[in-house]
Amino acid sequence: MEVLKLAPNETMQVHEMLNFKTVCMTTSKLMEGVVFDQDLKKLLEKDVRQSMTAITDLQNLLSKAPTIR
């Protein structure tokens, strides 16, 4: 059975998406504390939950990246 690996450029792109999603999630989490509108707060909480799922998925995808020695 052949093990599928990411190409180096794919690895870099997934890493960039992971960094971007982490920054977005951190921003949303920090904004939850300063927002008073309950609808906006719910949207931010939903964004944090979805971002955490996306971050986990991207980390799992990065586990298929080739190791560089």
Rank of each mutant, 00 (worst) to 15 (best):
L61K: 05
P66E: 08
V14D: 00
L6V: 04
P66G: 05
K5D: 04
N60I: 08
F36Q: 05
M31N: 09
L61H: 11
M17A: 14
T26A: 08
E2Q: 14
L43E: 04
G33N: 07
N60R: 11
L18F: 02
V35I: 07
A54K: 10
K21S: 00
C24F: 10
T22L: 05
V35D: 07
P66V: 12
K41G: 06
F20P: 03
L6A: 03
A7T: 14
D47F: 13
M12G: 09
R69K: 14
A65N: 01
L18N: 03
K41S: 05
M25R: 14
S28K: 01
M17P: 05
Q50I: 02
L18A: 00
A54I: 07
M1Q: 01
K41L: 04
S51A: 13
T26G: 10
L4V: 00
E32V: 12
T11V: 03
T26S: 12
M1P: 02
V23Y: 12
L18S: 02
M25I: 00
K21I: 05
T53M: 08
L40R: 09
L4C: 00
M12Q: 15
T27W: 06
A54G: 10
D57L: 12
K64C: 00
T22A: 03
N60T: 09
R49P: 06
M52Y: 13
H15I: 01
H15A: 15
K64E: 11
F36Y: 13
T56R: 14
D39G: 04
P66L: 11
L40S: 00
D57G: 03
K64I: 01
E16Q: 15
V3C: 01
M25P: 01
D57I: 09
T27A: 09
M17F: 08
M25C: 09
M52R: 13
T56V: 09
L43G: 03
P8M: 06
Q59C: 10
A54F: 06
K21Y: 03
K64F: 15
K29N: 08
S28C: 14
L40H: 02
V35N: 00
E2F: 15
K21N: 01
M31R: 10
Q38E: 06
